[in-house]
């Protein structure tokens, strides 16, 4: 069997899914600063989504005394771990690791099997929605401290988890009915609504939730220190648009770009589907700190599309 980027990515997604969702049952713990939706509300998970940590850090653990001593060091430690993990893999965390990403990919697969047309993917809609993830990140940043200083009730302490569809969907994979029932009883009333919208959205649009994901926004803000880059040789690009059509986020900028070398736009997931489907030799490259991991080629692309 030929090793292709697609196979590597899918394998990585499944391995990550198992490790992050069930790892705890086998003693695996990747810590509290995982840069993807490794949901801590999944009983027996193998690592914890750092958005939980972010809310905790910004809320000073609900307790201003945590600004000193051991709690501070531990918090800063996790910040450092998060930055290092993000620096190493950038948005590979989104495209190759995130368990919620894989769940979304299943919905896309289903849609394709049924031959249903993707919606909400027009350039205009996506442009309009692109600030949403930063707004959500702002929401995460602002609410927890307000709880700590007593301006908001404590139920606002984890404002994102309380509206995160991951929290509603990922625990289902524990297959533990009782646990899920208890968890569901603690939900905000908004969560079922958000989850319902997400479920419908995931079916009609590839990676629907990623459009709004504050983790994606956070990783993107750290781009200056991350090692992964998507690079484009504009002279080789014919403008065919294959990359845009292959892109789960519908990014048209890669194809449209005519000058810039760096085409890792803010909603990019580093999944490399664009480079895989680009028919121009060397037009798109995925780099890890100056080392080229994959470079588009006509021969590779030609093999990619032969199956109906």
């Amino acid at each position: 069997m030929v090793i292709t980027v697609r196979r590597l990515r899918t394998t990585a997604q499944y391995v990550s899914f198992i490790v992050l969702m069930y790892g705890g049952r086998f003693g695996v713990n990747l810590g509290s600063a995982v840069p993807c939706f490794a949901c801590p509300f999944v009983r027996g998970c193998g690592g914890q989504c750092y958005l939980l940590g972010v809310q905790g850090v910004l809320g000073f653990g609900m307790n201003l005394e945590s600004l000193t001593g051991a709690p501070l060091f531990s918090a800063l430690g996790w910040v450092a771990v998060f930055i290092i993990l993000t620096a190493l893999l950038g948005k590979i965390w989104c495209g190759w690791v995130c368990p919620f990403g894989l769940v979304q990919d299943w919905f896309s697969l289903l849609r394709r099997k049924l031959g249903v047309r993707e919606r909400m993917a027009s350039e205009k809609t996506l442009r309009l929605l692109s600030p949403a993830k930063y707004i959500l990140l702002g929401y995460i940043a602002v609410l927890p401290p307000l709880v700590t200083v007593g301006l908001l009730p404590s139920s606002f302490y984890l404002p994102f988890c309380n509206i995160c569809p991951g929290k509603a969907l990922l625990p289902l994979f524990t297959l533990d009915g009782e646990y899920v029932a208890v968890l569901y009883s603690t939900f905000w009333t908004a969560l079922p609504a958000v989850t319902a919208i997400t479920l419908v959205g995931m079916f009609f649009k590839d990676r629907f939730f990623c459009v709004f994901c504050p983790m994606l926004a956070l990783i993107h803000l750290l781009k200056p220190v991350t090692a992964i880059r998507l690079l484009k040789d504009n002279d080789s690009c014919v403008g065919c648009g294959n990359c845009t059509r292959a892109c789960p986020m519908g990014i048209s900028g890669v194809s449209r770009e005519r000058e810039r070398f760096d085409v890792q736009f803010d909603s990019c997931l580093d999944c490399a589907r664009c480079a895989e489907s680009c028919p121009s030799d060397g037009a798109l490259r995925l780099n890890w700190h100056r080392r080229t991991l994959f470079s588009s080629s006509r021969l590779y692309a030609s093999r990619r599309f032969r199956k109906p």
Binding site: R112, K113, G115, V116, R117, E118, C240, G241, N242, C243, R245, A246, S277, P279, R298, A301, S302, R304, F305
Partner: peptide
């Protein structure tokens, strides 16, 4: 031209993909 990326499987998307390519 060849090499039309066509992971999308609805009729509309396939025709649009051909048009673009």
């Amino acid at each position: 031209p060849g090499g039309v990326s066509a992971d999308a499987a609805s009729e509309h998307e396939l025709v649009a993909a051909l048009a673009q390519r």
